[in-house]
Structures are given as structure tokens and as C-alpha cells.
């Protein structure tokens, strides 16, 4: 008889009952799926990225399915800070789940204003700063792909909250390890690796992009090996916890990310296909660990051969 393994993990000041979070933009503001999946059973719910002003998002088409994945060009459609605070936050609190709010800004100053407004709000356990949206003209992944800028920005944000501060990075950069180190030095509690990969799809009938814009962000199973490699690279570069994201569809996928040293994982596109996907990842992960006789998730983390993960401190801190 195997016991249910202990899945609890720590992200800076935040203790999560298990390492499975919903990825930003794939779980709404937490309440849309609540009738089929109790968010209390998840590590945390990460909300859709909120910006200072509401955003209407990009013109259609915003979705194009490709082999084993999907491109999206949502363009950060969101309700904006005021409505988030007034309408969404009370609903989020009512879920009694651990909530991580995702924040997006075009400048460091905008992010600071968001965090000044929300940093002390009860019911928010952490903030994930979206430094990696591929679908906006300004303040997207390209703007934030500078280690010094990330470091300075996080240093400015750090004093504004005692909740966990997580930096979400784009994979479409020359050296993700450097960016991750910038985040660590700026005071981030954790780094998320990774957001979607920039991709394209062409409708050869019309000779046009299948999206309203030329490019979109690729997510789903198609990106898992790529995301896993980026995650591995980040784990080796920093000693703060890393959250893996990209193509995680089931418990096996989650254990792969944790094996390369991720402290936690995020379930994204899978929720569109099976709204209960995140809960199923928790269940499967627990079962797979139990089958292997592993009693604590920490014992699995970074279990990839040391030769493959030379940095001694990488991802080992709880």
C-alpha cells in the first residue's frame, strides 16, 4: 500500500499544497471553471494578466490550431486594474484558493503602479510579472528581454509587496539564463519558464496569416520539449525556485519538468481541452510518485542525473 505523497512546495514566502498551478490566461479569473474543479485543490490559480487600463485585445482571428499545438494572438484582453479589484478579486477571495495575480505593463513604472495598488490586497498570495507576452506591440517579450532592465524593474517592485514575486520569461531570447539571473538579482522569489513561443501559420488559400496579426504565441504539446530545455537551462542558472510551463498535459509531463529541477508547474492549454486538466495533473502526479515509492515531491525534484545539472544549488532549495 502506497501512501499519498507529500506534494507541498514553497515559492518564496508562499507555501503551496501541491506544485500544480493554472497558467495565466488559460483559467480566466479563477471562477469560470470553479463548478467543475475546486481551485482549493490546486497549488494556486494564476489569473489572466491584468494591466493598468482595460485592453480590448487583438482583432480576429485570435486562434489557429497547428500540429500538436495552438497559436494565439489574444493581445492581453483584460478588464484592467479597477475592474479586477472591484469585480474579480472578491470572487477570487470567495474561492478560498491560493491566488497569484499576473501583472503586465509596458514600462517598469506601470508595473510599479499595479503593484502599489494590489501589493497589499488580502487574498493574493503572489504576483507573476508577465515579462513575456508575444502579442502586444509595446511592453511585450522583446522590450523585456534585457537582463539589466529586468533586474532594475524587479528591484523597484520588490519593496512594494511581501507576497511572492515571480518573473515570467519568454523563451524567444538569446540567453534565457542571463535573464533569469537578472530577475534573481533584482529580488524575484521565482522565475516561470516559459511563456509561449512566437509562431506563424499561413492560410495558403488566401495567402494570409491564419491569425489577425502576422504572428502568435505557440502553446500545447508541440512546445513541451522546447519548454523543458529552457526550464532546465533556467534551473541551472539560478538558485530560486523555477516554475515550468509549456505543453504540460498530464502528470507525466509535470514530473518531467520537476525532474529537471522545476519546483512547480503550470497547466495552460490543457484546460481548454479538459477543464479539469489541472486537477487531473495533481491526481496523476500523486499516483505516479506513489507507484515509485516516492513519499515527497522534493525527493523527485532535480532527480535528473547530476551530470546533466552541474550547478550544485540549482533548484534544490525548498
Amino acid at each position: 500500500m502506497s501512501r499519498t505523497p507529500d506534494l507541498a512546495v514553497r515559492i518564496g514566502p508562499l507555501r503551496l499544497k501541491n506544485p500544480v498551478l493554472t497558467a495565466s490566461g488559460t483559467f480566466g479569473y479563477g471562477d469560470e471553471y470553479a463548478h467543475v474543479l475546486d481551485p482549493k485543490g490546486l497549488g494556486a490559480v494564476i489569473t489572466k494578466t491584468v494591466t493598468l487600463k482595460p485592453r480590448a485585445g487583438n482583432p480576429p482571428a485570435r486562434i489557429a490550431e497547428t500540429a500538436g499545438g495552438m497559436l494565439n494572438s489574444i493581445g492581453l484582453e483584460n478588464v484592467g486594474l479597477e475592474r479586477f479589484r472591484r469585480e474579480k478579486l472578491p470572487k477570487l477571495r470567495a474561492l478560498s484558493a491560493t491566488v497569484v495575480a499576473s501583472l503586465g505593463g509596458e514600462t517598469p513604472r506601470e508595473l510599479a503602479r499595479l503593484l502599489e495598488a494590489l501589493g497589499g490586497e488580502p487574498g493574493i498570495g503572489g504576483f507573476e510579472i508577465n515579462f513575456s507576452c508575444p502579442n502586444v506591440a509595446r511592453g511585450g517579450a522583446i522590450y523585456w528581454a534585457h537582463a539589466r532592465r529586468l533586474e532594475r524593474t524587479l528591484a523597484m517592485l520588490r519593496p512594494l509587496t511581501r507576497a511572492a514575486l515571480i518573473a515570467k520569461l519568454s523563451p524567444d531570447v538569446t540567453a534565457i539564463a542571463e535573464l533569469a539571473r537578472g530577475c534573481e538579482q533584482g529580488g524575484a522569489d521565482a522565475v516561470t519558464a516559459v511563456n509561449t513561443f512566437v509562431g506563424m501559420a499561413v492560410d495558403i488559400g488566401g495567402g494570409r496569416s491564419r491569425l489577425g496579426r502576422a504572428t502568435g504565441g505557440l502553446s500545447g504539446p508541440a512546445i513541451k520539449p522546447l519548454a523543458l530545455a529552457r526550464c532546465h537551462e533556467v534551473v541551472r542558472a539560478v538558485s530560486i525556485p523555477v516554475l515550468g510551463s509549456g505543453g504540460i498535459m498530464n502528470g507525466r509531463d509535470a514530473l518531467e519538468f520537476i525532474a529537471v529541477g522545476a519546483t512547480a508547474v503550470q497547466v495552460g492549454t490543457a484546460s481548454f481541452i479538459r477543464p479539469r486538466a489541472a486537477a487531473q495533473v495533481v491526481e496523476e502526479m500523486a499516483r505516479l510518485l506513489a507507484e515509485r515509492g516516492i513519499r515527497r515531491i522534493e525527493a523527485w525534484r532535480g532527480c535528473l542525473e547530476p551530470a546533466a545539472s552541474p550547478a550544485p544549488a540549482a533548484g534544490r532549495r525548498a
Binding site: G25, T26, F27, E32, P60, I63, N72, S271, F272
Partner: peptide
């Protein structure tokens, strides 16, 4: 109609002007 991903309002992928 629109191309859709989630069908439940969370992905914001099916806009009509």
C-alpha cells in the same frame, strides 16, 4: 460562428466586433 479554443469564455479567442 468563430474559431474557438475553450468555448467557455476563458481564452478570449473568439471575438466578434
Amino acid at each position: 460562428e468563430s474559431i474557438m479554443a475553450c468555448g467557455t469564455g476563458v481564452c478570449r479567442g473568439c471575438p466578434l466586433p
